[in-house]
Design a protein around this nucleic acid. Structure first.
Lengths: 157, 157
DNA sequence: CTCCTTAATGAAAATGGTTTCCATTATTAA
DNA sequence: TTAATAATGGAAACCATTTTCATTAAGGAG
């Protein structure tokens, strides 16, 4: 329970300080929410979850913090095609397992899957290396997502 | 050169009519632009290209048409993370080759690559089949993209 | 070819997620 | 404690996209 710890002792302490960022209550609160919730929170979702405990943290700060975290590589910014960005904590110290996303275009439900991940990751790494060399890119991220209709939504129509 | 043909004779004629859509000048113009341009046009890009020839086609129509085309599967709607959607013609009758995208997060340049596509496609199909069965999804689309810095942009910093 | 139904359209206004502005507050190094 | 400046909140701005609504035009029926 990171929020219960002494200020500045969280696992992200080092990362922040190392990059010249200040450690603030708002940032702690946001990281706390992200590490408790399981995946796919929008900025507003986070705002709503943070608000009861810290009513004076504004939506602007949420966006700014998520931007910082995203740049630090501590958070993934996801797009499921519904017009709002989602955020999930990148692997923390406990090493959340690598996964990709399966999105229902009917109800926007998102399934995290880990099946085939090993093969995927292997191919991705090869491709990344090959593309990087051929096109002179310094590749540092990728997206794989599948879109379809879940059983409910494909049944409904 | 589709636009030179008699109205209603384009290769998309059948698709439109079959789905109850009417064939209009605007739609023809937009498809024409898309088939001439090579990839990645935003709605505004298309608007600007269409405008000289058809000054009375509004941006709204562009959006509406792209939506129809996208639903028909004739156009892919792409997101490169810069806040505006891009569109490219799905494989036409001449069979544009399947490709994926490599995006520079520095200058937003996009490289279409076909390297490793065969392996990718094979893995994707397997994964698609496996996921579809396991999670009861009717998968009908996927996204693979790599993000990084091109040589210019990684050199600049 | 003409008429009629209704899909398609354009212009303007609305929408809504995200960003910017700016005066105020709070963190951190000295 | 103090000074320098990063971070903040609220309001306003932004801007791609969507909606509204009155008008136009595609295409089947006759």
């Amino acid at each position: 329970m990171p929020s219960g710890e002494c200020r500045g002792q969280g696992w992200w302490h080092g990362k922040f300080r190392g990059c010249g960022y200040r450690l603030t209550l708002g940032r702690e609160a946001i990281l706390d929410i992200l590490s408790k919730a399981e995946g796919h929170l929008s900025a507003e979702d986070i705002y709503i979850k943070v608000h009861p405990k810290y009513p004076n943290i504004g939506l602007t700060t949420i966006y700014r913090t998520l931007d910082v975290l995203s740049n630090l590589g501590m958070v993934y910014k996801l797009d499921f095609g519904d017009g709002r960005a989602r955020y999930e904590l990148a692997e923390g110290p406990k090493g959340a397992h690598h996964h990709h996303h399966l999105v229902c275009t009917g109800c926007n439900r998102v399934v995290d899957y880990t099946d085939f991940i090993d093969e995927e990751v292997e191919l991705l790494q090869q491709t990344e290396k090959g593309l990087g060399k051929k096109y002179n890119f310094k590749i540092n991220n990728h997206v794989i997502q599948f879109y379809g209709l879940c059983d409910k939504c494909s049944g409904n129509k």
